[in-house]
C-alpha cells in the first residue's frame, strides 16, 4: 500500500511538473542558432566524451545523434536545435 502511494505521488508530481514546464515553453523558438550551437556543442559534449567532428556524420545522422544526446545529457530542446544548426552548417 505504501509503495502504491509512493508511486502514485511520484507520477502525480511528474504530471504537475510537466504541466508547469509546459507553461514555461509557450513562446519557445523553433529554429536553431549557429553561434549558440557552437557554444553549446563545445561546452556540453566534453562533459562525458571527446568532441566529435561535424564532418563525421551526415546532416540527417546528426539529428538522431543530437536527440539521443538530449536524453543522455539533459539538454534542452533549444540547445538541441542550436547544436544541430551548428553541426549541419559546419558539415
Amino acid at each position: 500500500m505504501l509503495i502504491k502511494k509512493t508511486t502514485l505521488t511520484a507520477l502525480l508530481s511528474s504530471v504537475m511538473f510537466t504541466a508547469g514546464m509546459s507553461s514555461v515553453v509557450a513562446e519557445q523558438e523553433t529554429v536553431g542558432d549557429f553561434t549558440r550551437g557552437a557554444k553549446a556543442w563545445s561546452q556540453n559534449c566534453i562533459r562525458c566524451h571527446n568532441v566529435r567532428d561535424p564532418k563525421e556524420l551526415r546532416d540527417d545522422q546528426w539529428i538522431t545523434t543530437t536527440f539521443h544526446m538530449r536524453i543522455r545529457a539533459g539538454l534542452t530542446g533549444q540547445e538541441v536545435r542550436d547544436i544541430i544548426a551548428f553541426l549541419q552548417q559546419s558539415n
Binding site: T7, A10, L11, S13, S14, F17, T18, M21, V24, R70, I71, A73, G74, L75, T76, E79
Partner: peptide, 19 residues
C-alpha cells in the same frame, strides 16, 4: 522516467525521475 534540462541561475540543470 521523466528527464530533461532547464536553465537555472545562469547555468544548466538536468534531472531524471523514474519509477
Amino acid at each position: 522516467m521523466l528527464r530533461g534540462g532547464f536553465p537555472l541561475g545562469g547555468n544548466s540543470a538536468n534531472y531524471a525521475i523514474y519509477v
